[in-house]
Design a protein around this nucleic acid. Structure first.
Lengths: 213, 213
DNA sequence: AGCGTTCTTGACCGACGGGTCAAGATCGGG
DNA sequence: CCCGATCTTGACCCGTCGGTCAAGAACGCT
């Protein structure tokens, strides 16, 4: 049993931010930082958003950031992971398990577009340049999971004779590509101001169904 | 007629890099810098590529960069514009003017995918984060031109009864989205190593045709 | 009140990278 | 050879921003 004796002064910040048990107030404060960051990243991008900006927006001093997060990219990673979980839940809820593969794929695609249109902040996170290895890894993590899901559904549809016998991985890329390009254009205001999210989601369903026919 | 008298020492670098008449040797040197930059941007991204890296790769001293380019983003803008022209030429050549709109759209899409697969450097330029206004403007410039072209073709196809009466701008976004998502996945090695560019282009043609059916 | 813990502040540090510029090399023409 | 123009060098400058940390405030428990 080895007990490490650390002088009291030096032990003050020896616990990594990730390993801390925050109080309720601390958790609220942390969330404020995350919310501020999400909004600023969406507005200006990751690189152009400074930690000072985030703290100013959250109404705290810059040094406080490091009580809650070890680095800027660690905050980013946490943001992405949280949003990704929410997206996955949205997708799963939209897919009716009692229906056929094509319908499920297109339901999932429509739900994704809907989620992304309603959560522009999340979508903007995916536009970040991947020069930082931490960031590149985090962004890569989730992308392949949805791709594999869709790929599996495509293969199921092919076995049922609902989808042509083309390469399932390419078809899956096509579905994911549709989701991201429509969401991106909606977010950038390229689709006109009279288009509702529901109309867009319905269109994406048709697009995906047609492409898989 | 006002002639400005400038001391000879101060006039030495008074001409902006853009306004210079370079010698043949100078033009070659400039191209070396552009080539080196294109490769490094593709490999590591814009932000992570320093001017020092570009100069080292081109085998020149860092200060020389500013004889040829006023800023880093000016070099980037020139790169993007050059590549965009080449892409447009490739697209135009691939579209048979004697055939129907759907065929032309899908031919253009296939040619774009082919070009991008064979010019990874160009495609990587489009992944750059848009925090620098100069960069954001340059990237925005060209994107809408192709979109308008495709939109016009879609409308032509709709008048001819070849394409359903859905929103043409959305259908055009779908085509462009397909081009970029397939190119991106190919570039990232997500499509397996046995897929050739020709096979990919052929697949994209089928995908676009189906989606517009 | 005292104490330990959590939280908060903001001046400071140092690495980084875009950009500067004086000095000098090279080239081409007369 | 001389001269003017083009090109080239690399030490230096300076602003930027992520991260540090000593000092102190606030909180909760005994």
């Amino acid at each position: 049993m080895t007990e490490v004796s650390v002088p009291s002064d030096q032990a003050k910040n020896a616990v990594a931010p990730d390993a801390r048990q925050h109080t309720e107030h601390g958790r609220e404060r942390k969330q404020q930082l995350l919310d501020a960051a999400a909004e600023l990243f969406a507005d200006r991008g990751y690189a152009a958003t400074r930690i000072a900006d985030i703290c100013q927006s959250a109404g705290v001093a810059k040094g406080l950031f490091y009580w809650y997060f070890p680095t800027k990219s660690a905050l980013f990673a946490e943001l992405v992971r949280t949003m990704r979980l929410r997206l996955r839940r949205t997708q799963a809820q939209a897919m009716d398990p009692l229906t056929d593969a094509v319908t499920r794929i297109s339901q999932g695609a429509a739900a994704s577009v809907q989620f992304m249109a309603e959560n522009a902040a999340y979508f903007a996170l995916l536009d970040v340049e991947r020069s930082d290895p931490t960031i590149a890894d985090v962004l890569k993590e989730g992308a392949s999971v949805y791709l594999e899901d869709v790929c599996r559904l495509v293969e199921e549809g092919q076995r049922a004779g609902l989808i042509p016998d083309d390469k399932s991985d390419l078809l899956a890329v096509g579905v994911l590509g549709a989701v991201s390009s429509f969401s991106n254009s909606y977010r950038n205001g390229r689709l006109g101001t009279d288009l509702t999210v529901d109309e867009l989601a319905a269109f994406v369903q048709r697009w995906v169904r047609n492409a898989l026919a």
